[in-house]
Amino acid sequence: MKIRHKALCCIRRADTFLFTVRHDGEPPATAFLIPPGGMIESGEEPGDAATREALEELGCDIHAWEFLGVQVDEFIFRGERCRETVHIFASALPPDACIGSHMRESNGDVHPLRWFTTDQLEACGLPVYPLGLPEVLNRYVASH
């Protein structure tokens, strides 16, 4: 089983959050939505990983993260069993930030970016990962 520790960056603009559209393999693969983010490096704090990932993948320098929780998920991705410990962070999009229509991962993979309200996430018909994230984001929105 592959074990991973990730930091997810739930970036908010007005009443929407930024998500990447991913696929679990080569076509015809299942599409799903997940916020930008990535692996926590050895010795790195989860919040520092969120800052690094936002800068690397989106070009956004964000340091004011609000910790929303940790979730452990087990799933099969591209035929491999995985267990992820996901540290979920949220922040407002900085006023001077400019987000493009795609993001590039450090391995060169390019993924489209889309902004969704939590209602749109629930109605879009695509799985949202980690499971239960729309409810976490609804609680975040209600508290701000």
Rank of each mutant, 00 (worst) to 15 (best):
L68D: 11
I11R: 06
R114V: 12
I3E: 15
P36W: 06
F89N: 04
D15R: 07
E84F: 07
E74W: 00
L18D: 07
R83D: 06
A49Q: 06
A50E: 09
R78K: 14
P95I: 02
T16F: 04
I40Y: 09
Q71P: 00
D24S: 09
R114N: 11
Y129R: 12
A92N: 12
P130A: 05
D15S: 11
T85K: 14
G125S: 04
E53V: 01
E56M: 02
R104T: 12
R22E: 14
A29Y: 09
G69N: 04
I62C: 00
H23F: 13
E26F: 08
F17Q: 02
D48R: 09
A49P: 03
T85Y: 05
G100D: 03
A97R: 00
L68R: 10
R114E: 15
L93I: 00
C82H: 13
H102S: 06
L58D: 08
R13H: 15
Q71F: 01
V72L: 06
H111F: 14
H87T: 05
T51E: 15
E74F: 00
I3K: 15
L18F: 06
E45K: 05
V110A: 05
L33I: 03
P134M: 06
E45W: 01
S42V: 06
L121Q: 10
I99R: 09
W65F: 00
R52C: 04
I3R: 14
A90W: 02
T30R: 08
R114T: 12
R114G: 12
A123W: 05
A31L: 04
A123M: 10
A92L: 11
F77P: 07
G100E: 03
G25E: 08
D119R: 09
A90Y: 06
G125T: 05
L55D: 13
P94S: 01
V141R: 08
E122Q: 14
L55A: 14
G108C: 10
G37H: 12
C82D: 10
C98P: 00
I62Q: 01
D119L: 10
E45C: 01
G69L: 03
V128E: 13
T16H: 14
R13Q: 14
